[in-house]
Design a protein around this nucleic acid. Structure first.
Lengths: 135, 135
DNA sequence: TGAATTCCTACTAATTTTGTAGTAAAATAC
DNA sequence: GTATTTTACTACAAAATTAGTAGGAATTCA
């Protein structure tokens, strides 16, 4: 039951970008140094965020990234779903398990996923920045 | 973000034992056949359950396992914690991260774990058997 | 032109998950 | 008291996923 480094580092990228100033262009090199993460690995994660248009890239010298939206407009459930692939605690929830009907445990996993989603859907990047993550 | 087969198969063992009748002694061979899971793998998982006294073993011919308690006395959060090791979505919550104080994301992960725990603490094995898992 | 940076593809290493194999020990049935 | 069935234990192995590297092409700025 783990959020991988992919999801955690993605969040760190978003937080770092926000903290440097919303319209500031920040290079991965700078983020890698501040967060003490391999820059090459961050590249791969930034690619995911960029592809989904969560961050905007500026290529070339003095280039880097910045947030595409305001921090309050990023919802944690979506960010994690993007980087982790899914929030489903068991794969049968995702890929349409043929036995889903008769499966006695299915409601349990579905309920767990729903609860996680409900919690994470209430939290925005801004909340994380402010330290006002709801209990 | 996954519950592994270890946790899922452990639950299947518990469900199977309950369904065969509470005082019935059931061999892993029978469970393996019914649930279509390798018996050798089930052995390893049953060992965990046995060690924690979730199930009682009867060795020798006609031996097997049965539940140690009533189904309503098994709480899902505990069962999953036992087999999965932890419900913490990030390892820094478990092993006392030295940077926990200054970590801006810590409240998010802690909140997520608490929500998962709250949900799973309300559900017993009996609920799963009855199909009355709370929404 | 040179330096800094994103972008892209492929590869590799480490870790975890998911098992398997083999054998010992216990209990029962005969 | 022997054969059979079953759990208990230890060690190993295969597969999958996660995490990270390497190298270079394309882009932009100075």
């Amino acid at each position: 039951m783990n959020i991988t480094t992919k999801g955690r580092y993605a969040l760190k990228i978003m937080i770092d970008l926000a903290q440097q100033g919303e319209d500031q262009v920040v290079s991965l090199k700078a983020i890698a140094q501040r967060q003490d993460i391999s820059m090459k690995y961050l590249e791969a994660i930034a690619a995911i965020l960029h592809k989904a248009d969560y961050i905007t890239s500026i290529r070339g010298k003095n280039g880097g990234y910045r947030l595409s939206r305001k921090p309050k407009d990023y919802v944690l459930s979506e960010l994690l779903r993007l980087t982790e692939g899914s929030l489903a605690p068991v794969s049968c929830l995702e890929s349409g398990c043929p036995n889903a009907e008769g499966c006695i445990t299915q409601p349990l996993w579905a309920g767990l996923e729903r609860h996680m989603d409900e919690y994470l859907s209430k939290i925005t990047l801004q909340d994380v920045l402010d330290g006002t993550v709801p209990g």
